[in-house]
Every structure is written in structure tokens, then in C-alpha cells.
Amino acid sequence: MTTDILTVADLKKYFVIGHSGILKREPITVKAVDGISFGVREGETFGLVGESGSGKSTVAYTTIGMYRPTEGSISFRGRSLFDGNKERPLAIKKEIQIVFQDPGSSLNPRRSIKQILELPLQVHRQDENRLEQVVRLLEMVELPPDYMQKYPQMLGGGEKQMVAIARALATDPSFIILDEPTSALDVSIQAKIINLLIRLQNEFHLSYLFITHDLSLMRNVASRVAIMYLGKICEVAEAAEFFRNPYHPYTRMLLSSIPVISEEEEKLKPKKIISTGEIPSPVNVPTGCSFHLRCPAKLNVCSEVDPVMVEIEGQTGLARHTVRCHLYGQAG
């Protein structure tokens, strides 16, 4: 039995975006993340999938420490990441790193690749030969050593992302958050980055929290997948099981919407369900199950009661498959 390296328990993150009224000022809040729980196992890639407004990036930013949770907790190897108002200790920062979506913004245009890669070494590894380390980091991401002297704008999008990955590796972390690391890139370049990430994971025994909106990509990288919709998780399962037997109507809608390039894939897409409706604004989340306005299998109860997570026996056997939908209530 593998243990969880990262545990998210009932995490909530609300943002106050303004105030209503003039005399009695009621805060207007966005429930970006509204009570989610999951665990990432040692050495696995946990995929978090969602569309815009689902709160998947908020989960990433909270985990890395850019936000504090409104409620709930995130712990790393059993140790809480938020200890009062204290700054996160360096020892934990070293273990958890992040690769952002847009390498154009995550690499400082005024700093050379060498300077960018030296920073984590300066902070975390004082004794070693830095130049050697920088060369080794570039090697790890398959870039030639002379890239040290270059500046980000001289590199292509894929190469920039490789530098961002090298920077994340520089602290010698055990857990990396990948926030849509390839969605700004072309497919032909995406493939290389993905394979690099998989290789690095095996080589350094890394655990990934992989955030994306691309289910097809998820199928190829994740060991387990969680689907988010408007700040809540609606389904979690092992990747293989998940794509064979999606339960939640939203998951099915998502799957049926994916453009695919072969007949075999076409067969995996649920046929009976087609995408309808708009994604509601997270400021104004529908009551009950937040998906009920778009749901083709809506029951009367759906508009009133928010369903809870229930475990369903996966058809592939031992795989744990949980879903949050009234269709699979206590009776199921």
C-alpha cells in the first residue's frame, strides 16, 4: 500500500471580489474551491481536470503557497503546509515545486538561463559547484550547456518550458505541481515535454499533481484522475477505469465533447450525451448540485440537495471509483 505524499482535506478557498450594498456591506465572494479532498500517492501522477472556473489552478496556487486556504488543510507527508501565519519553511519549499502554464511569464525576461537556474541552487544548496550543477540541470532537460548564456526570449516555447522544468528540479524536490505545462504549446512540442516529464518522474521518483483541461492528455500521463466542476470534485478514479466507465454526467459530457482523431477513440466517447448550456459564473453557483442546469439526467432532488461523494465499485475490479451524483446515491 502506497502512502499519500500530499493530502488535501476539505479545502475551501473563497475570494472576496467586491461588496454589495452601500450601508450594509455584504462581501461578494467567489467560491473558487469549495470543499475538495484528495490524496496524491508517492510516485504517482494525479490528474486534476476541469474547465475554466473549475478552480483547478486555485488548488495549485494554494498548494504552492500563493494563497492561504479559507478553510480545510493541505498536508505534505503528514505535516500541515499552513502553520498559522508563518512563512513556509525552506525545507518544505525545497520539496514542493511548480511548473506554470506560460513559460513566457514564468521566466524573467531580464535574467539569463544561468541566473534563472542558479537561484534555487543559491537558496538550497550552498556548498556545491554551481556552474556544474547548472550544466547538469540543462542536461536533465536535454538542452545543450551553451543555453546558459541565453535569455528567455531567444528560446522557443518548448525550450522555455524545459528551462522552467529544470528550475523546478533544481531544488531536488519530491513533489511537482504541473499547472497546464503544455497547453500553451503546439502538439508536436507538447509530446516531447510530456515524455520528458515522465522520464524525469521515473528517474527521480517524483510525484506529480498534473492540472489540465485536456482529457486525452490526461489519459496518457495520469495514474488517477479527478474531475472538477465549479470548485468541487465530481468524480475520481484510476485513469484506465475512468475512461472506460465514466459515471458522472459531467464527465460524460466532457468526454463526448473531445475532438478525437481515430475510430477507436470515437468508440470511447459516450454517444447519448451532448454538451449543452453554459458554464455558470463561479460568483453565482446554482443551488443543489452545481451541474444540474446542464445535466441531461437531472432528478428533482438535484436542484435542492448537493450530492455527497459515494464510492462505486469499479468494473475493473479493485479500483476505487468515487462519484458525487444523486444518480448513484446510497441505493447504488
Binding site: 502538439v187 508536436s188 512540442i189 507538447q190 509530446a191 516531447k192 510530456i194 515524455n195 515522465i198 485536456d214 482529457l215 486525452s216 492528455l217 489519459r219 496518457n220 485513469a239 484506465a240 475512461f243 468526454l255 473531445i258 478525437v260 482523431i261 481515430s262 477507436e264 477513440e265 470511447l268 466517447k269
Partner: peptide, 15 residues
């Protein structure tokens, strides 16, 4: 080859 497939099985190394 570089397009990730819903059927899984990994992706080729791209171009």
C-alpha cells in the same frame, strides 16, 4: 503521432 489518444498508451516523441 504526437496527438495524445483517448485510448492511452503514451505519445510519440513529437517532431
Amino acid at each position: 503521432d504526437a496527438v495524445p489518444r483517448l485510448t492511452g498508451g503514451g505519445i510519440a516523441d513529437g517532431i
